[in-house]
Design a protein around this nucleic acid. Structure first.
Length: 222
DNA sequence: CAATGATCATCG
DNA sequence: CGATGATCATTG
């Protein structure tokens, strides 16, 4: 297993050396088998990248490289460089959110600095043959940070006001709220319409694909 | 159950 | 055919 990178530069350099490698090559180097399909292994690509870059494992609600202040995200893209999916950011808090500020939020923290690793993901390419594109480091511009903050504040206000059941993935310009659970029977406490505690499906914050697409365009040109 | 890693499957 | 809502594996 690779040692943890000592600096952001080292992390980025190591990530960019993975450009052009296939998932099969990376899996072999990591000593793990390549699944025939992602159907039952949805997080496999992300965990493979974590292994190669020396990210901390486990399920901590923190950045992947806390000492570097960097979050790692894989980004499934088409041959044309367009994201195939929205990007999960973190679980949304549904209780105990009185007075919560954007700057102290998990979303703001995770997105303050992200190492994006685009990966070929067109269904026509066999999983083993999919290649890593060029990873790049990103921090929100003032304009991007403003959009994220606006969406976060809108969504969190609805949650705080007990309107969680009225929130759909249509809310938010770049950041959306969607169910995030192993299945539909998972329940977690939330604030109800009359301020009481209700049980609802856990939600997560996701970045819309048009937002991540704009990041790709900014780094690789229109 | 809740957090991590996400993609799948269906609908409009 | 893109987006929403649902789901899969794993760990603690």
């Amino acid at each position: 297993m690779p040692v943890r990178p000592a600096s952001v530069d080292e992390l980025v350099t190591r990530a960019q050396k993975l450009s052009g490698r296939t998932l099969e090559e990376l899996a072999t180097a990591a000593g793990v088998p390549t699944p025939t399909s992602l159907n039952r292994s949805k997080g496999w690509v992300g965990q493979l990248l974590e292994w190669h870059l020396g990210a901390s494992a486990g399920s901590k609600p923190e950045q992947d490289f806390p000492e570097l202040g960097v979050e790692l995200k894989t980004l499934p893209i088409t041959a044309a460089g367009k994201p195939l999916e929205s990007t999960f950011v973190c679980i949304a808090p549904l209780t105990g959110i009185a007075g919560m500020q954007w700057a102290a939020s998990n979303v703001c923290n995770k997105l303050s600095c992200v190492l994006w690793v685009p990966v070929e993901a067109s269904p026509t390419i066999p999983l083993a043959k999919r290649r890593i594109a060029t990873p790049f480091l990103w921090s929100p511009s003032n304009e991007q940070a403003k959009l994220l903050r606006q969406d976060w504040e809108e969504l969190m206000e609805m949650i705080a006001l007990g309107e969680i059941e009225s929130v759909t993935a249509h809310h938010g310009e770049v950041l959306q709220l969607r169910p995030k659970a192993a299945n539909g029977s998972a329940l977690t406490p939330a604030i109800g319409r009359n301020g009481q505690i209700i049980q609802t499906r856990p939600r997560g914050f996701y970045l819309r694909s048009h937002f991540t697409h704009s990041l790709l365009k900014a780094f690789f040109g229109i």
